[in-house]
Design a protein around this nucleic acid. Structure first.
Lengths: 130, 130
DNA sequence: CCGTATCCGATAGGATACTG
DNA sequence: CAGTATCCTATCGGATACGG
């Protein structure tokens, strides 16, 4: 249920803490950005894109993202059963809020390090890093 | 469904990682929200508002927020010399991006726990100092 | 291919005591 | 009041091995 008043005063920060516990994980925002850019991804696809992540933190992060309803896990009953992760509507919504921040951050500190391991658009797959 | 808007492509995520290292700290967003609501705050004022935080993490967090240019530390040469923390213009800008997320989060998971230690508006008392 | 199970090192953050 | 200095613990995240 929603508060009747649009002028949102009195926000309890407890849910924020809950979300933060998820988003503060090292790879969470990156996963959201990648799924937003490229749609569905499998576990090892994600792992490959993220580069240096180990299976455990990836698994943990995906679980918590699923738990907060930002990411959806779909299991395909194909001959080699495969798994696909994608953003939920809430995940898309959150990504919309996130994009201006990503852009702003990149403009502030915006040094494009040559050895940057992760270098992509916040909202489209344009592989033109240089 | 909203497609992603075109254009600002090629965002390097390195600066994001840097900012995340700061914002992922347990109390960082809360401090930004409080300073945004109430303007300048002293060290122990902040500590009291945050409730259960210990001096070390508070000190650490304030230093890193200062380091990324989101928070400004002002030292007053009053009789008992006091210190005041406040948001920088960048801090205010960031807070602007943050507010919709805070509101959104509180509306999604929006359970207002009775024992919530921190319960305030994300932008109640906007006395913008600039 | 999709993870889980273990072990391990690094670090965040709490408690407390103490100094300027 | 505004921190710093220790100490201690919990958790995160990486590596590797293994199972579904």
């Amino acid at each position: 249920m929603r508060k009747s008043q649009p002028d949102h005063t009195d926000i309890c920060f407890c849910p924020l803490s809950g979300l933060l516990d998820v988003l503060a994980k090292k790879w969470a925002l990156l996963i959201i950005a990648i799924l937003g850019n490229e749609g569905e991804k499998g576990f090892n696809e994600l792992k490959k894109e993220l580069g240096s992540i180990s299976p455990k933190p990836l698994s943990d992060t995906l679980k918590s993202l699923e738990g907060t309803g930002l990411v959806h896990k779909r299991i395909l009953a194909t001959s080699p059963p495969s798994v696909k992760y994608s953003l939920t509507p809430d995940g898309w919504q959150f990504r919309e809020y996130l994009i201006p921040i990503l852009v702003w951050v990149s403009e502030r500190g915006g040094k494009d390090q040559p050895g940057c391991p992760i270098h992509r658009s916040p909202h489209r797959n344009s592989n033109n890093p240089k």
